[in-house]
Design a protein around this nucleic acid. Structure first.
Lengths: 194, 194, 194, 194
DNA sequence: CATGAATGAGAGTTCATTCAT
DNA sequence: GATGAATGAACTCTCATTCAT
């Protein structure tokens, strides 16, 4: 595959991403993507066989580009609590942005496809996030910012709560205040004063 | 609609339930249900206009029949901790039973339908569960079984964790041990010794 | 068929008439009529086999009830010109009332059914109208109101013009003024001053 | 749309025309046309969305191909009376050719569609025919062939009579002699001797 | 007579997928 | 590589018509 092909493939994936954001995963047809990309029907099949394949590529690109959720905008002298709060606020923003997110599409995709474990990007992301939070909490504990007996458990708990909030936002709907309440609860659990 | 019609409607809903359990929500067509029920194409339309309508009926029946998650199998002398543990184990069983659950269908349904709040059975269930758990924890605190500063917050936290576990079970997959770990973490948080 | 049956049949025909007025002939289904009559599906079939059969009954009733287009509202001392004008104005009213008429349904019906000549109510009506107008013109000529060399031809011509206006009203649309112009043209042709 | 597509579209329209001639407008389904054209179900939808759309195209083609009803077969030295007679005979032929005409389909189409004025090809044709006949009569009057006080009125009258004959041919049926009688009446009205 | 549930044929429409150019 | 016309399977939905009650 030449350089040009690689470019075109990337163009398709990026355009398709917008479609998935808009419509979720299941509803999207090859036709939708063909039209969004303004290429020929047959043309798309030269690069991808199905919406699943395209979506997997979207996910791959996604994870490539957002490795460093944390490292991005963190000041040198930020405390662990600062960083955790930043992270939680970022997640809040993300999960309240009901539309304009890949979230729903991701869920639908994993529902549909009885996921080959190894390719499960979602799981990798979850696990790596747990690790990072755990590290962060440990640092906080060392600094005397946090109080915590089971750092790993707490990290996991935080991630599951976030997952719960995320899916709730998509299904039963959730308010900004409700998210704040949960964030506060988490911080209180770490011994952080309001 | 006569008695017979009511029976048939119920028969359709119960049969459709199996289809939804098997295939989720989106993938199910009127044709699928027609075939599962072994009735005629037009016959189904006598009772329902769409899969959404059928699914809403499935949910209604579901919630009617499972009002009393708790009251059912609770001994007279059960402690708050006993009851909570029972509840959590029930939830565990449910969420690990990946296939054979309506869970995925429910999520898909709520993704698709940007449902009017009032009809949101899911939300009602969530809120009522929070209330019940809160009561339970308060009882436990009074009995000296639990230690807890923010009963309502804890109840909510438990429910969000359960939601997180449920969706994770459907997407990234989750082991029995992982669930146990979370249950333990919750109980520890309430000051219950292992 | 008992007295009650006759009543019911009449009720159906009269109700169906409204449906035909509203929707024309082709679009009307047995279901439409069943619903309009608020009777059972099977019930309708006890009386009629098809919409065609019902419509033919509608036409029969129609012609029974409107035998005397003229005789109705004619004063003793009306002149031939008066009566002709009255008739033309009546026709004008009828044909401008685009909706609220059986006209379209009648046309559609005769299109569909390769009409058995003998049952052709429409033809009978046309022919009898020609006769009446012819008589009228003759009377007018005798009275010196009209000038006319070929009374029968003129009568037929008038009826064809009316038919042309009627169908035009249903298809290309026609204004009140356009009809007036044609009426005037006819009267002028008979030597009537404006 | 390439040259080939244009060809195919034309092929569909021409084939569909035959179907409309045979069955009128309302009774024709997309399936009928698909079968007549011997193309695939989806294939037809590439070109047209509905029978209405196809029919409008049929009408467009029709009017394109029959612009010059008159100019075609008119000798250099034809008199106005000759031309008028030619026109009327042409119309007679047309309206007696009960089957093999688009007439019925056209009426049905205009019944169904409460058509926006501008798209009303039928009206345009009617109006332009009136103009042409008017011109013709004026010429005839100048030549001393015709006698006529209100050329425009007469032209309109002729057209409405023709419309009346046309619809009558489709509904109550009409004989060749009946048409001749009307033609004669018209010509007599213009002062033409038999 | 009357009901209305049930059937099944058939119309409309949309897409994934192929393939000649 | 790229195009886009073409196919045909699959779904949705509506009714005429029947028939047990």
């Amino acid at each position: 595959m030449g350089e040009k092909s690689v470019q075109k493939k990337k163009y398709i994936v990026e355009t398709a991403r917008k479609v998935f954001v808009e419509k979720g995963f299941k509803k999207v047809t090859m036709k939708d993507i063909v039209e969004a990309c303004d290429i020929s029907r047959g043309g798309l099949y030269l690069y991808f066989e199905s919406t699943s394949q395209i979506f997997m590529e979207v996910l791959r690109l996604e994870s490539e580009e957002t490795d460093d959720v944390f490292s991005d905008s963190i000041k040198e002298d930020a405390t662990a609590a600062d960083i955790l709060l930043l992270f939680l606020r970022e997640q809040k923003k993300e999960l309240l942005r009901k539309k304009d997110t890949l979230t729903q599409a991701v869920y639908e995709f994993y529902f549909e496809n009885n996921l080959p474990k190894k390719d499960n990007v979602l799981k990798k992301q979850f696990d790596s996030a747990v690790k990072i939070i755990e590290k962060l909490i440990e640092t906080g504990v060392e600094n005397g910012e946090f109080y915590c007996e089971d750092c790993e458990g707490t990290a996991r708990n935080i991630m599951f709560v976030l997952e719960g909030l995320k899916i709730s936002a998509q299904t039963i709907g959730i308010t900004s205040e409700a998210v704040d309440r949960e964030i506060l609860y988490i911080l209180n659990g770490l011994g952080v004063e309001d």
